[in-house]
Design a binder for these strands. Structure first.
Length: 413
DNA sequence: TCTGGGGTCCTAGGACCC
DNA sequence: TCTGGGGTCCTAGGACCC
């Protein structure tokens, strides 16, 4: 049995690169990648965080997730451009098309990351990786890092080494030199909380964790502890999962531009979110059985309530009414900043037997489906509930829909 | 902190059952 | 009360990822 070879492909500063390429394609003479720049949310709408940064911006100490305000303090001449998700979905789709030429076994991990199984191929893996990297750069205009290893974990760790436009390997015999000296926070699945816990007991590098007794970590940090101990030792054997992985939940949330202080207004926000969750779950041909509402107040404190339904649903009104009840049960009356609804324990309609209870809701489902098709044809706001008129609240909140095309870049580079 | 939005998985405690 | 012992389901919260 020959050793497995897995590639992890990671787009360098994805949103920022894609934004830069789009602007070059549309006549801009500035390449955002070469100046201090970020893709950032709208500060006026209180969405002002850094979603992606250029390498020059990184040199000012700007990090993803920090507020745009503090990023501008670090670098006053910083250029901030708004995000355009449909654009990024298209760029991502184009990259996947390229990957498919190299292996039939590809797992899309996120909008800007994918695993590719390169086991048992005739071509030498480093040659293939180099061709792949160059093809993406020449044809699509952006660069990627490729990590190569015997499993997904090591491939992913390798793609994170030095950037941009680089290929790195991380096989079993390289773990000690290339991975063990790294700080513990660099290990996949060690976040800031776990970092602090590990440091408090003298574990500072990935090697420190790897050399700790397995049972000690397991009994201390339970399942997640065992997982990161195995990762530190390069142990991971999940397959590259080809094809669509069914969603287990759909959720949408929004940070309002202003604090919501009345129940009526809060209900409207919940209805607008319910519209999107209903639309998405119907589009997936699925129903969910658990509805959860979470709110974040002006002090940034969050709390949630959930309820399991007797019968799974994808009906906008059922989602809304449940969400409203949950909200009324938990809200303490303080000003609210963020609202979120989640529909989970999703089951496909094909597997979900229509019960007598559900058939009562046939009319409701017909109405939802009719509205969905009108919105699909004439736009999301072609049918809206009258309560949203002059309310200052969007009638549907959340979601991403793609429309433009992604041109080839070969003429420019 | 002038702090987004979409996901997955895990844990702890209480209810309830045998 | 010196207060069984599992197992499963449910809810709230938290950790992590991009």
């Amino acid at each position: 049995m020959s050793e497995r070879v897995v590639f992890h492909i990671d787009v360098n500063s994805a949103y920022l690169s894609w934004e830069a390429v789009y602007r070059l394609q549309h006549g801009s003479c500035i390449d955002l990648r070469n100046i201090p720049s970020i893709v950032g949310g709208d500060q006026e709408k209180r969405h002002g965080i850094v979603l992606a940064k250029s390498i020059p911006a990184k040199k000012y100490g700007i990090i993803t997730g920090e507020s745009v305000h503090s990023a501008k303090e670090k670098c006053p001449e910083l250029v901030s451009v708004p995000p355009n998700y449909p654009r990024y979905v298209l760029a991502s789709d184009e990259m996947i098309k390229v990957l498919e030429k190299y292996s039939p076994n590809i797992q899309r991990y996120s909008i800007d990351e994918a695993f590719l199984d390169f086991s048992n191929r005739d071509e030498y893996f480093l040659d293939a990786a180099l061709r792949l990297k160059e093809e993406i750069k020449n044809n699509l205009g952006f660069t990627v890092n490729i990590g190569i290893g015997p499993n997904k974990l090591l491939a992913k760790m390798a793609s994170d080494f030095s950037k941009p436009d680089r290929i790195h390997t991380l096989f079993q015999n390289e773990i000690k030199d290339k991975m063990h000296p790294l700080p513990i926070r660099d290990l996949f699945m060690v976040g800031s909380r776990t970092e602090k816990k590990l440091q408090s007991r003298g574990i500072f590098t990935i090697g420190d964790l790897a050399n700790t007794k397995r049972d000690y970590i397991h009994s201390w940090l339970k399942k997640p502890g065992l997982l990161i101990w195995e990762y530190a030792n390069g142990i991971e054997n999940s397959p590259v999962k080809n094809g669509l992985i069914p969603l287990k939940s759909v959720g949408n949330s929004t940070t309002m531009p202003f604090d919501v202080e009345s129940k009526e207004e809060a209900h409207k926000v919940l209805l607008a979110i319910s519209e999107m969750i209903g639309l998405r779950s119907r589009d997936l041909n699925s129903c969910g059985q658990v509805i959860s509402v979470s709110i974040k107040n002006h002090m940034f404190f969050s709390y949630s309530h959930q309820r399991k339904l007797i019968v799974p649903t994808n009906c906008t009104n059922t989602i809304y009414k449940t969400a409203r009840d949950l909200f009324d049960e938990m809200w303490q009356g303080e000003p609210l900043r963020n609202f979120s609804i989640n529909l989970s324990q999703l089951v496909s309609n094909d597997f979900f037997q229509l019960s007598i209870l559900e058939s009562i809701n046939k009319k409701e489902e017909m109405l939802d489906r009719t509205i969905d098709s009108i919105r699909l044809r004439y736009g999301q706001n072609s049918v809206i509930r009258s309560c949203f008129l002059y309310s200052g609240i969007d009638p549907i909140i959340g979601g991403v829909v793609a429309e433009e095309a992604y041109p080839m870049m070969s003429s420019i580079l």
